[in-house]
């Protein structure tokens, strides 16, 4: 099972990296999501793929009856998924806002137009706020 998962993880990393170097921001977010999933799967795999019982200790024993599955990697993945969920949700809101202000999801368009802004000088600090 491990070799298969290793290939899958490698594939996910490769796909994530490929998407991240695309110009579209949406694809970049997809790439980030894949990268996160690849990392999660990696943790899952290095936590040993054993078919074990839940690590419950019977009432009259001091050790669980072996073999048990290690719960820690799963807890780590769960936490990481939750965090990834939050971050990706934020990133989606962000790219929506970017699309609204820039009118494009192409990073090159964003940058070139911004250089135009920079040469016009930054006159916005003083505005926008009166007592």
């Amino acid at each position: 099972m491990e070799p298969v998962l290793a290939v899958v993880i490698g594939g996910l990393y490769a796909a994530g990296m490929y998407l991240m170097v695309r110009r579209s921001i949406v694809k970049m977010i997809f790439g980030l999501a894949l990268l996160g999933n690849a990392a999660n799967l990696l943790i899952f795999t290095v936590g040993r793929l054993t078919r074990g019982r839940p690590p419950h200790i019977p009432l009259d024993a001091t050790l669980p009856s072996l073999p048990v599955a290690d719960p820690v990697p799963q807890a780590l993945i769960l936490t990481a998924i939750v965090i990834g969920f939050g971050v990706q949700a934020f990133a989606l809101v962000l790219i929506k806002r970017v699309y609204q202000t820039v009118g494009s999801d192409d990073q090159d368009v964003m940058v070139t137009e911004n250089q135009g802004l920079a040469t016009r000088g930054t006159g916005r600090e003083g505005q926008g706020d009166e007592v």
Binding site: M20, L32, L35, G36, A39, L42, I43, V46, A80, A91
Partner: peptide, 20 residues
């Protein structure tokens, strides 16, 4: 956001391997 998320993914992978 992009650069820091890459860093987080690397960190996560590193922590996972270290636990392994």
């Amino acid at each position: 956001v992009a650069l820091n998320l890459i860093a987080s993914a690397l960190l996560l992978a590193g922590i996972g391997l270290l636990y392994g």
